[in-house]
């Protein structure tokens, strides 16, 4: 016996499907639907949810499918290229902004030191869950996960004279910057001698 008796067919259909009331007088299609839903509900109740790990792994398949290959971000602002000292900054730090129509990457390139060259910045408009990979002129790579707010931070080897940044999602590169120098031309070469260039015949 139901605790209340609202003559609501939908409620009665569920009660009947669960064996708590009689199905007499119920529209057949409603009774059948409620029965299917109760069977399904019981099955769902008994089953374990999908392991989160499976979903996270499948998330890595994502790459913006409308982009063919990597987007090349253009250098639109460079503190070294401006004559305004307030923008240039007193230190040897370099601030760059690279962008295309939809995405932007801002980076601050620290002064080279024995510990390396610190690069930190933010990416906007690119897929979340990305990784920033710095590839130096000496063919070394350093990677850093893009954290909440699009923030990334990495340290290049001290011998890096230039590098470019790749933004990757899973295994796919979705954006790339042009090569960026770690030192201005008047600072001279890095303290570690650069690898000799191959001569062209």
């Amino acid at each position: 016996m139901s605790p209340v008796a609202p003559d609501v067919p939908w409620v009665r259909a569920f009660d009947a499907a669960a064996g708590r009331a009689s199905a007499a007088g119920l529209p057949a299609d409603l009774g059948a639907l409620a029965s299917r839903l109760v069977v399904l509900g019981r099955r769902i109740e008994q089953e374990s949810p999908c392991p989160t790990r499976w979903v996270r792994k499948a998330e890595a398949l994502f790459a913006p499918p409308t982009r063919i290959g990597a987007r090349l971000l253009a250098l639109v602002l460079d503190s070294w290229a401006t004559p305004v000292s307030a923008v240039r900054g007193a230190s040897g730090r370099r601030y760059v902004r690279l962008a295309d129509e939809d995405a932007r990457l801002d980076a601050e390139i620290g002064e080279p030191s024995g510990a390396g060259v610190q690069v930190r910045g933010t990416v906007e408009g690119l897929a979340s869950g990305a990784t920033v990979v710095a590839c130096t002129d000496r063919r070394k790579t350093v990677r850093a996960a893009v954290r909440e707010g699009g923030v990334f931070e990495l340290v290049l080897p001290a011998d890096a004279a230039s590098f470019h940044l790749d933004v990757r999602v899973g295994r796919r590169t979705v954006a790339r910057t042009p090569a960026l120098a770690t030192r201005s031309a008047d600072e001279g070469p890095p303290t570690v001698p650069a690898r000799p260039r191959r001569r062209t015949p």
């Binding site: 769902i44 089953e47 374990s48 949810p49 999908c50 979903v55 998330e59 398949l61 979340s128 999602v169």
Partner: peptide, 17 residues
Amino acid sequence: SDAWRGLLERYADLVHA
């Protein structure tokens, strides 16, 4: 990418089951 995650999460339990 959030939409992709949303799709996966929406159907994960069904596929798993």
